[in-house]
């Protein structure tokens, strides 16, 4: 079997990937969700409650986490979608802080001391879920729904004239994105067996949005690159937990925005890469 160290890295990579795809779906349709940690927290706590209090098997408690976060995402999308641009960024940000504040003040959920979730999900479950999610997102982005999402990202007025139900697409993206973030939270709860409100903080929301924006929102490859790069590189460099690791992270962010403001993986990039790939394959 895998060593504990590698297994730990793979687990956090899986959780970050699913989480990043949740935020990516909203970003791909032109909305920035800076409240990712809020949805992840909902997923984690719903799963925890389902598992601890209702003693459901893991499959159903995870499903509960997905549905819970998706439902909240659906409900919150209507007021949030009334706002635009920076206001939307901050509305979602406020949402996440309200969620973590509510959890902190709720004795039922363990408050500041956190919640133990004994039912354990091994890393294989995480890997399997991640594969499924990546497949679903790639499928979605290759479909007409994905095309419409990207069109809404570029120009919502023209999309509406082209017959796209813009509001519907945005609500759909927000709901599904919330559900995926909820899935990542539920898996987190079951894998680490302990959750606390302090973990799902503003910094987490900021980091996952950075994964997505730096990876690039034009194709489904973007978050795959962003989340993997920023999860794995610090480990590979063996920088450990020193502050220099974060300084380098910050410098990378600034440089990437200067040289590739549309994200590292753009559509043109994927197109050229696939051309090279096919040419090599033909030889």
């Amino acid at each position: 079997m895998m060593g504990g160290y590698v297994e730990g890295i793979i687990a956090i990579l899986c959780i970050n990937l699913i989480f990043a795809y949740g935020i990516y779906l909203t970003a791909a349709s032109g909305q920035l969700n800076l409240g990712g940690a809020g949805f992840q927290a909902i997923g984690a706590y719903v799963a925890g409650v389902c598992s601890n209090y209702f003693e459901l098997p893991i499959v159903f408690s995870v499903l509960g986490g997905i549905l819970g976060a998706g439902l909240i995402g659906f409900l919150i999308s209507f007021p949030v979608l009334r706002t635009r641009g920076v206001y939307m960024v901050l509305a979602t940000f406020a949402f996440a802080l309200v969620i973590s504040g509510i959890i902190l003040n709720s004795e039922f959920l363990g408050g500041a001391t956190g919640m133990v979730v004994p039912a354990y999900a091994p890393v294989e479950v995480l890997i399997f879920s991640t594969f499924i999610i990546i497949l679903i997102v790639f499928w979605l982005m290759a479909s007409r729904v994905g095309l419409a999402m990207r069109a809404v990202h570029d120009d919502d007025v023209v999309s509406e004239i082209m017959g796209v139900n813009v509001k519907g697409i945005q609500v759909f993206a927000f709901t599904l994105g919330g559900a995926l973030a909820g899935l990542s939270g539920a898996l987190y709860a079951h894998h680490y067996s302990f959750i606390e409100a302090q973990y799902f903080n503003a910094v987490l929301s900021i980091f996952v949005l950075l994964f997505v924006l730096i990876g690039g929102t034009q194709t489904a490859w973007g978050p795959l690159f962003g989340a993997s790069f920023f999860t794995l590189v610090p480990e590979i460099l063996r920088l450990g937990d020193t502050e220099w690791r974060y300084v380098i992270f910050g410098i990378l962010i600034v440089l990437m925005m200067i040289f590739r403001p549309q994200g590292v993986v753009t559509r043109t990039f994927v197109h050229r890469a696939s051309k090279i790939f096919y040419r090599t394959a033909e030889r």
Partner: peptide, 17 residues
Amino acid sequence: RLMPHLSVLENVMMGQH
């Protein structure tokens, strides 16, 4: 008012939506 990040083909296919 084309979608700046979509390809030519994708822009045209938006018209079939």
